[in-house]
Amino acid sequence: MQRRTFVIACACPSLALAQAGAHVDEASEQAQGIGYREDTRKVDAKKYPQHRPEQRCSNCNFWQGAKADEWAGCAMFGRKHIANGGWCVAWVSTPAK
């Protein structure tokens, strides 16, 4: 946890929760539109033949958190958070550093 997040959480717990962002609901129209699943192992292989088991949100170029974060932001979902082990059709490999 970053120091700033810790200080905010101590000073104002409700603000810290709001800052953390709501999780994307797999049943939402937006999530279904791009095939988002919280668990890459549960992606329908027939519907998404381009999916590979090693592809997950935390190794996608749109992931906005640290590799170890359980949930983080995603450019596809605005302020909502996605699961580290999730996947969607917008998955793009993170460029080599």
Score class of each variant (00 low, 15 high):
M1F: 04
Q2G: 07
Q2T: 14
R3C: 01
R4W: 14
R4F: 15
T5F: 12
T5E: 15
T5S: 13
F6Q: 12
V7E: 14
I8H: 01
I8A: 06
A9N: 00
A11H: 01
C12S: 07
P13G: 00
P13A: 02
P13I: 04
P13Y: 03
S14G: 02
S14L: 02
L15D: 02
L15M: 06
A16T: 04
L17C: 03
A18N: 08
Q19T: 09
Q19W: 10
G21A: 09
H23R: 13
H23K: 12
V24S: 01
D25C: 08
E26Y: 10
E26R: 01
E26F: 10
S28F: 11
S28T: 13
S28W: 11
E29P: 11
Q30T: 15
A31S: 10
A31M: 09
G33Q: 10
I34G: 10
I34P: 10
G35R: 01
G35L: 04
G35W: 08
Y36L: 11
Y36C: 07
Y36V: 08
R37I: 13
E38T: 12
D39P: 03
D39F: 11
D39Y: 08
T40G: 14
R41C: 15
R41P: 13
R41H: 15
K42S: 15
K42L: 15
K42M: 15
V43A: 06
D44C: 05
D44F: 11
D44M: 03
K46D: 15
K46E: 15
K46I: 14
K46F: 14
Y48I: 09
Y48E: 05
P49I: 13
P49N: 09
Q50R: 10
H51S: 02
R52N: 14
P53Q: 00
E54I: 09
E54Y: 09
E54P: 05
R56K: 05
R56H: 08
R56Y: 02
C57Y: 02
C57W: 02
N59V: 11
N59I: 08
N59E: 00
C60D: 06
F62Y: 13
F62Q: 08
W63V: 02
Q64N: 06
A66K: 06
A66Q: 08
K67T: 12
A68N: 05
A68W: 07
D69W: 04
D69N: 05
E70P: 03
E70W: 05
W71Q: 10
G73M: 00
G73S: 03
A75W: 07
A75H: 04
A75E: 12
M76W: 02
M76E: 09
F77I: 06
F77A: 00
G78I: 07
K80N: 07
K80I: 01
K80L: 10
H81I: 13
A83R: 04
A83H: 00
N84A: 07
G85W: 02
G85A: 05
G85E: 07
G86M: 01
W87G: 00
W87A: 06
V89A: 13
V89I: 13
V89T: 14
A90V: 06
A90R: 05
W91G: 01
W91M: 04
W91I: 00
V92R: 06
V92T: 14
V92W: 07
T94M: 01
A96Q: 11
A96V: 13
A96T: 12
